Amino acid sequence: MKDYIKVGKIVNTHGVKGCIKCVPFTDDLERFDDLEYVYTEKDNIKRKIKEVWYRKGTVYLTLENIEDMSTAESFKNSYISIFEDQLRDLPEDTYYLFELEGMKVYSDEGEYIGEISEIYQPGANDVYEIKNNDKTYLIPAVKEVVKEVNMKDRKIIINVIEGLLE
């Protein structure tokens, strides 16, 4: 597992007192209420969360030592992260997205399909981007397709339905 886990991307500032606007990388927005601090990727500094609020799926944070718009602006397009020990336990058969990236994907007949290079969250279900040399496949993360996720062996088994790999 990685040391730092990205939990949001700083996309803008808010106001003149150093508030940052973040796109969260979590399904549970209120997750930020439980965090005491985050790490800013730009300077790799642990910063105490002074205030957090939410609006329209976006997280607004006031962080320690970011107290004006100019300083906040310098963090734009960088990430905020947490350490592994700040992660919440997940229910059985659910995974953090970063845990799935890089996993090898096989058909239920044992054929190697490729490796998960990216995960998209367009709406109803996640979509796994699987790359194998010059080929790229987009696989819906639904039970009809994803049959097994083996974290120990870093391997995913999928049911290759008609038209899926074309």
Rank of each mutant, 00 (worst) to 15 (best):
K104P: 00
M103N: 01
M103A: 06
I119G: 02
L100D: 02
V105W: 04
Y112N: 10
D93Q: 11
P122I: 08
E115G: 03
G110P: 03
Y120V: 03
L87D: 07
D85V: 07
D126N: 14
Y106M: 08
Y120G: 06
E84C: 07
I113Y: 03
T94I: 02
D89M: 13
E99D: 13
L97F: 10
N125P: 00
S117P: 00
Y79V: 00
I113C: 09
P122V: 09
E118N: 12
E101M: 13
Y112M: 10
K76P: 00
M103E: 02
Y95Q: 04
G110Y: 09
Y128G: 01
D108C: 07
Y106F: 15
G102E: 02
R88I: 13
L100Y: 03
D89T: 14
L100P: 08
Q121S: 13
G114S: 04
I119A: 03
G114Q: 06
G123S: 08
K76C: 08
F83D: 14
E99W: 05
D126P: 11
S107R: 06
Y128V: 04
K104F: 09
I113S: 08
K76N: 09
E111L: 11
L97N: 11
E115F: 02
E118S: 10
K104N: 14
Y96A: 04
D93T: 10
F83S: 12
I113E: 03
E118D: 12
Q86P: 02
Y112V: 09
D85E: 14
D93F: 12
G102P: 06
S78E: 10
I80K: 05
Y106Q: 05
F83N: 13
S117V: 13
I82W: 09
E84G: 14
Y95K: 03
L97C: 14
I82Y: 07
L90F: 05
D85T: 10
A124F: 12
I82Q: 01
Y79T: 00
E92M: 10
D85I: 08
Q86Y: 11
